[in-house]
Simulated scan of single mutants.
Amino acid sequence: MSTENPRLRRARKSRAKMAELHVTRLTVYRSNSNIYAQIIDGNNNKVIATASTTEAEVKKTLKNTSNKDAAIAIGKRIAEKAVKAGVKEIAFDRSGYKYHGRIKALADSARENGLTF
């Protein structure tokens, strides 16, 4: 039996497919206290834009950094940064997390603010 983290094992399949297709992806990581998002270029694996609840500007506007409201704010922020950088079409890398709760809120917010996936 492997001691590997099951979430990372699940994430590997979708990441392998995204790498094969060379698509730009929106990667999400959530901890118990924060949520992070990155737009990563599919061709040369460079980070184009980042947003997280640890940023000072974001922290000031949020009452709590670990709920759906925080995820919505980060989704909006990452979408605005991506569109500003010229990225509109992406693949959503949920990093092995279930598509519900904070992950779904972030994805829906990013879609509403200009990203297509």
Rank of each mutant, 00 (worst) to 15 (best):
L26N: 01
I35E: 09
R25F: 05
I72T: 13
A56G: 02
A16Q: 14
T27H: 10
L8E: 15
M18A: 15
H100L: 10
T50H: 06
R9D: 11
R30L: 13
I39W: 02
S109C: 02
K46F: 07
K98T: 10
K59N: 06
I40Q: 01
K76Y: 07
E112M: 12
V28I: 15
E20S: 08
T116S: 12
L62Q: 02
F117V: 10
I35F: 06
V23P: 01
R25K: 12
N64C: 10
K81A: 14
R9T: 13
K81G: 06
E20Y: 03
N67M: 04
E20T: 03
K63I: 11
A11W: 06
R10T: 05
Y36S: 00
M18R: 14
M18H: 11
K81W: 06
K81D: 11
D41G: 05
T3K: 13
N113A: 02
L106V: 02
E4R: 09
G86D: 00
I40Y: 03
R102V: 05
G42F: 00
A82D: 07
F92P: 07
S109Y: 01
K46N: 08
A91S: 12
K76P: 00
E4N: 10
E80Y: 03
V58K: 06
A70Q: 03
Y29M: 11
S109I: 06
Q38L: 09
V83N: 13
H22C: 13
A105Y: 02
R30N: 07
A82M: 05
N67P: 04
V23F: 02
A85K: 14
A73K: 15
N67K: 05
H100W: 04
T116M: 12
R12A: 15
S52H: 03
G42P: 02
E112A: 15
K46I: 08
A37G: 05
S66W: 08
T50M: 09
S95T: 04
G42A: 04
K98A: 11
S95M: 01
K63T: 13
G101C: 05
E55S: 14
T53N: 02
A82V: 03
R111I: 03
R10A: 04
K81F: 08
T50P: 00
A51T: 06
A16F: 09
K63C: 03
D93P: 05
H100Y: 05
V58S: 02
V47I: 14
R15Q: 12
Y97L: 13
K60Y: 08
G96P: 01
A105S: 04
